[in-house]
């Protein structure tokens, strides 16, 4: 959040809803996933929609709104990665905090479940960041997401030495989104952000 100059970018400086939307987007890029701090909520692909409504066009003045106060109402749709992932609540709070810090006070965050989140929504930049962080990013096409037992695993590349000579240790890892692998060449254990 420090990267954004609060004097320049905040709610009251936006002169159009597009500009306000752009500002909101930039703020969201500074809100990270608490489990995988290198990824922002934008990288993760969980922000499904950002809508900006000029406060003046609202038929009802929202509670706490005063004339001369903030100009834009922000509506955000967010989708959870995994059904039981507790990180979603933390991310909602952090999004609200970040927006508040930049002068947006009228914020509505709605959770949507459908269409269900998929790792395909993780941005390219996000995938690069994951690898640099030591987590193997999800493959583009995966054949291992079905319920059939003992499926052939696709070769997962070791994020440390780039070898494909790796093995699955456990389908379930330290968080809901990861599986545990080990590299047979450099011997390092690593997390794989499993396909979903």
């Amino acid at each position: 959040m420090e990267s954004i100059n609060q004097n320049i970018i905040n709610n009251t400086t936006a002169s159009s809803s597009e500009e306000a939307k752009h500002i909101v987007f930039e703020i969201l890029e500074t809100v990270s996933d608490p489990e995988v701090p290198v990824l922002s909520v934008i990288d993760l692909g969980i922000i499904r929609n950002i809508e900006i409504i000029p406060a003046s066009s609202l038929e009802l003045v929202p509670p706490g709104w005063e004339a001369g106060g903030k100009e834009w109402k922000v509506l955000i749709s967010i989708t959870p990665t995994y059904t039981g992932c507790p990180a979603i609540d933390v991310m909602k709070i952090n999004i609200r905090m970040a927006l508040l810090q930049h002068g947006f006070t009228d914020i509505q965050i709605t959770q949507v479940l459908s269409p269900a989140w998929t790792t395909d929504w993780i941005s390219e930049k996000g995938k690069e960041k994951l690898k640099a962080y030591g987590i193997a990013p999800p493959h583009y096409t995966q054949a291992v997401c079905t319920a059939d037992s003992f499926q052939m695993e696709e070769a997962i590349q070791c994020p440390l030495c780039n070898s494909y000579h790796t093995r699955l240790v456990s389908q379930f890892g330290s968080t809901a989104c990861k599986a545990l692998y080990q590299c047979e060449d450099c011997k390092e254990p690593f997390d794989y952000f499993k396909c979903h």
Binding site: P80, T83, L113, S114, A116, C145, T146, A147, Q151
Partner: peptide
Amino acid sequence: AITEKALKEVSYHVRW
């Protein structure tokens, strides 16, 4: 919507 999402996770449970 709930079951569409949960189905992905349940697939892993069945497999495991």
